[in-house]
Amino acid sequence: MLSVGFRALFKREVLRFVRRPKNTFMPPAITNVLYFAVFGVILGNRIDQIAGFDYILFIVPGLVVLGAISNAFENASFSIFHGRWNEYIHETLTSPLSYVEMVVAYVGSSAVRGLIVGVIIAAVGRLFVPISIEHGLYLVATMVVVTTLFAGFGIVGGLVARDFDDLTVMNQFILRPLVFFGAVFYSLETFEQAWQVGLSLLNPMVYMVDSVRYGLLGYSDLTGVGILPAPYTEFAPLVSLAVLTACTLVVLAIDVYLFKTGYGLTD
């Protein structure tokens, strides 16, 4: 898997975003300073604790997920689409890399960008509130899985898009609403109606935000909403991670299939 060709493409993809911090790392850093200042400090002081946490601390995991998956998606979709638009993706396509190597390089590098942004947001949060990590290994595994999942979606987006507007639509009208209704800024316990909780559980973001919150704060909404029968409720985070991992593998398989068939890449 780690052939010279794969490493070359992976490095090229990482260098592309590392050399442009103004476009890649500065925006999420600034946006999250604003989020923490407004939602965390100004509004947060007027909100009671949620699940025993100060509001500003409660929203840290959600903001980390929001930034990480948005950037993973954006990086993969942009890299693929821009390469298609200017046709320089031909440099990759006409090379002897296998389709699996191509996909893993594009997805892996985009996931790395998502992870870096996640760390930046956590660091920004740390400026406002002390954060300790409760389940480090679980947190790392979850972050790797969700950024890989969205990098994988980004590949599909980059292949399906016909112009740059399509990419904006995907990010603004699909990704962002799902994240905002993914319990980033509130707990599922907030809902009084069962249907509200039921509807939320259909949103895949809920599981991602909850998993990262569990990894970071040691608290999971899902253990309390009955998705698993007693006495297994405490395994909800592990089940979430397993399901997310399975979804990621499916999306990666779709990516490889699309590359293999040349969808959006060849005539």
Binding site: V4, G5, R7, A8, L9, R12, E91, S95
Partner: peptide, 10 residues
């Protein structure tokens, strides 16, 4: 260099 790399050249 990238193109050469894709072709397995160190």
């Amino acid at each position: 260099m990238h193109k050469a790399g894709y072709h397995g050249i160190p």
